[in-house]
Design a protein around this nucleic acid. Structure first.
Lengths: 151, 151
DNA sequence: CGTTGATAGTTACATTTTCAACTAATACCA
DNA sequence: TGGTATTAGTTGAAAATGTAACTATCAACG
């Protein structure tokens, strides 16, 4: 017979080793650091940034594709797409075979913004990675991808 | 002379290796998984959960201490404290030497909730950690703490 | 066909978070 | 002492997010 929570858990649990907590804080700290790049210059939100980078890096795709690849809810993506469309960073193109889909493609201005931010992102990531050895960097990223359920 | 963004960045940058992105997604995925524990049973938000766990694990402290330790903005903490006070999970105690401070302490009910959630958190973290070797787990946590700016 | 069910995406509403301005108390320092 | 700057914490309005219900389109199957 086991108690619903053992005293051991209370004695041994430590917040500073709890993965969801650590991931959230480190994610928040690093993302806020990078955020100024796109927020100040383009007034973009984090989700808009994600959509822009998916299209810039991986080419045209539907909103649903972005949802799946970025593990992001469709309402967030839907609003980000509308916002990016309003500032003419992307265009929608209805699929004629199946008109539920619309393919999203960056405009030249959208792609230009992507390129600019790409440089900043690369710089930012190199600075973060400089804290760790190549082996640590590899393990870190592999673990994170697995936790996120990414390929 | 260097261009503001080199073509190399555009060619080589990959979203799925970008740390802020990976941290955010993995943080969101794992936290959403654990969230049901405290949300369903106690109707707590993520920030309220954090405050509860700081007090439960590390003992009485001020809101400012929680802000510093959890790298969380004071307005978030302030509102979480009010909410936890309303359901009588904690009490405030004005410091008489410096009356700007108030020390926060869990009530017996608050501590009971902490103990219950502690068990679930321990279980949840063990399940996540089971995906990795002890060495990977150690490296992962050390890297995350450093990125988060935690001791 | 026509009904049922699934899927892509949007919208309305509630909750949360952010940002800036605010109060109250203390520290600093001439 | 008195004025200015800091610090702890709160609050209101705006922005972002989450949840659920919605439209529109297509698929499957009688």
């Amino acid at each position: 017979m086991k108690a619903p929570h053992s005293e051991d858990d209370v004695a041994h649990f430590d917040l500073k080793d709890f993965l969801p907590y650590l991931l959230n804080i480190s994610g928040e700290v690093t993302s806020s650091g990078f955020q100024s790049s796109y927020k100040n210059q383009y007034g973009m939100t984090r989700t808009e940034w994600r959509v822009l980078f998916h299209l810039g890096r991986y080419g045209d795709m539907t909103a649903r594709d972005i949802c799946t690849r970025a593990r992001t809810h469709k309402t967030k993506v839907s609003r980000a797409v509308s916002a990016l469309e309003k500032v003419r960073f992307l265009k929608r193109q209805k699929n004629l075979d199946d008109r539920r889909f619309e393919t999203l493609c960056l405009t030249p201005e959208g792609y230009k913004a992507y390129k600019t931010l790409c440089g900043k992102a690369g710089q930012f990531d190199r600075a973060l990675s400089a804290n760790f050895t190549p082996q640590e960097n590899a393990i870190l990223r592999r673990c994170l991808r697995q936790l996120a359920g990414l390929p």
